[in-house]
Amino acid sequence: MTNDLLNEAEEFIRSCYKELNKTNQELENRLNQINKQILIYDFYEHTAEELEYGAKVAWRNSNRCIGRLFWEQLNVIDKRNLNSEEEIISALFEHIRYATNNGHIRPTITVFTQKSPNKTVRIWNHQLIRYAGYKTERGVLGDPHSLSFTETCIKLGWEPKFGKFDVLPLVIQINENQPKLVEIPETLLLEVPIRHPHYKWFEDLNLKWYAVPIISDMMLEIGGITYTAAPFNGWYMGTEIGARNLADELRYNMLPQIANLMGLDIKNSISLWKDRAILELNTAVLHSFWTDGVSIVDHHTAAKQFKKFEEKERNSEREVSGDWTWLIPPLAPATTHIFHKSYKNEINKPNYFYQPKPY
């Protein structure tokens, strides 16, 4: 374990200090310092500069993300010094406020203490802001993706509201302590009502979505050190909402209802009713976010941005890794250059990784 950590630490520090244009003397001094820490304590701590670099490069290395052009613009908030659930919750509220920025979304990550034998911090939520899902006699009410977590929150004492778009509470746990549950203040929540530029009946569907997707259940790994609580966000690509969250059969499944209201024949696939309905749903999502001044990107623009990212990486003599099945947008993928390319889906570190659910 010690040798593995030494090797990963050295590989990270050499890469970090090279890209940050540090001197050879600074590099050797830091490596000696880290070696001593690991040999004595079996771990080491990143400097603020190393943490910021590592978090940004983890985004650059994220194979499934089409938005990596902006990796250098990530705002890194260092909260490794916090020790209590109350302090962590306050920091999460601050992350939501700062990242939301009245709709001008700022890419942000808040990093809490590293995992150690004495300390582990976990955020139970998949995303800091997410809608509840309830099993009812008529099927699922709300978001089916949230069924198990919603039941967990109810067992922990949360009072369900049984609405279609109920924002779930935050659940924080330190070590094996009793998890702490808290509602997100409404003043921090920015949600966008979904309406269509031409179909006025769209408003009657009473659809909406939250402004910022803050992933909170993944771990950040930098140079052999693991941060089990490091929520991060960019801004939405429209298809994430319009072609997945609101459209998937296993999510809100809105396509049949929209197609019916459009007067389409949903009994015959040759009518391409799903294609026409999903196009108008995505049109509505983009229109609504733009009208409300909330940052969002369409999939064609995102693909062009990814192409620019590929060019910049090539100029920096770095090969772009990628998971093709995630990089192609779920709407009109063949109209993007990504569809016609292949990528090595190899994992480079630093990076963000899935971890087992704590519940």
Rank of each mutant, 00 (worst) to 15 (best):
L261K: 14
I172F: 01
H126Q: 05
D248A: 14
R138I: 06
S295E: 02
H340T: 05
G293N: 07
L220I: 08
Q73W: 09
F12W: 04
T113R: 12
E11G: 05
T239R: 00
H104L: 13
W59D: 07
N351D: 06
I241L: 08
E310K: 09
M254S: 04
Y98I: 15
T325D: 14
R60I: 06
P144H: 01
A259S: 05
W324R: 15
I266V: 15
L170R: 00
Y252T: 02
I241F: 03
H300M: 09
L246M: 07
L141E: 03
R80A: 00
L51T: 11
K79M: 04
F112A: 07
N125W: 01
E10K: 10
V140T: 14
F339Y: 15
Q114H: 08
L281Q: 04
K18I: 13
H95N: 12
E87P: 08
Y354H: 08
R122I: 12
L6E: 04
A284I: 10
L170K: 00
D275Y: 10
W201H: 05
L156S: 10
E311F: 02
L207N: 06
I328Q: 08
L246G: 04
L220F: 11
R106E: 11
Q305G: 01
K344Y: 09
N348R: 14
N253M: 03
I347F: 12
P329N: 12
G223F: 07
I184T: 02
L92Y: 01
M254F: 06
H337L: 06
I109V: 15
A332E: 12
W273D: 07
R138H: 13
Q73H: 15
L5I: 14
H337P: 08
P333V: 10
L220V: 09
H46G: 02
G242D: 03
N63L: 07
K304R: 10
I77F: 10
R106K: 15
A229T: 11
N32R: 00
A303Q: 01
D217C: 07
K200D: 15
